[in-house]
Amino acid sequence: MKQMEVTIMGQSYLLGCPEGGEAALGQAVSQVDKEMCAIRDGGRVKARERIAVLAALNLAYQLAEGSTLAAAVPAPVAKANDVLAASQTADLPDLAGLMQRLDEALGHDGHLL
């Protein structure tokens, strides 16, 4: 297995990569970086761990909707922000419970939102 050094949101990571998988890993890293930077630049979330959770949710949403990691789809970021805003107004109690469980799992890091 080959190792690749990548940068996500200005931080370097050394990742394992199968031979011939460099291009696919590069695309995945690029998409994760775009998602995380978009959330950070939105200004509502500052903690890197929280940004990573929201980016993971956005990417999972894209995959569930049938898009690929290579496709640049800004809509999930807006949808995630809308859902989070709605959960704060108690319109979505199930999401509020999920957010509470995530807060508990994060422990010392504080609340997710």
Rank of each mutant, 00 (worst) to 15 (best):
K2D: 11
Q3I: 10
M4K: 14
M4R: 14
E5F: 07
E5K: 12
I8Y: 11
M9N: 14
M9C: 13
Y13A: 11
G16L: 14
G16I: 10
E19L: 14
L25T: 07
Q27E: 13
Q27F: 09
A28P: 06
S30F: 08
Q31R: 15
Q31H: 14
V32H: 07
D33C: 08
K34V: 12
E35Y: 08
M36S: 10
A38L: 11
A38S: 15
A38I: 08
A38D: 13
R40Y: 15
D41E: 15
D41Y: 05
R44F: 08
V45E: 05
R48Q: 02
R48L: 05
I51M: 04
A52F: 01
V53S: 01
A55M: 01
A55G: 05
L57C: 15
L59Q: 07
Q62A: 09
L63F: 04
A64S: 13
E65C: 08
E65V: 02
G66P: 03
G66Q: 03
G66C: 01
A70L: 02
A70V: 05
A70F: 00
V73P: 00
V73C: 03
P74G: 00
A75N: 07
P76A: 05
A78K: 15
A78E: 13
A80T: 15
N81P: 05
V83H: 05
Q88R: 04
Q88F: 00
A90G: 03
A90I: 00
L92S: 04
P93G: 01
P93A: 01
D94L: 12
L95Q: 04
A96Q: 05
G97W: 01
L98C: 05
M99V: 12
M99H: 02
Q100D: 09
R101S: 07
L102C: 03
E104S: 08
A105L: 06
G107E: 02
H108L: 11
H108N: 12
H111S: 10
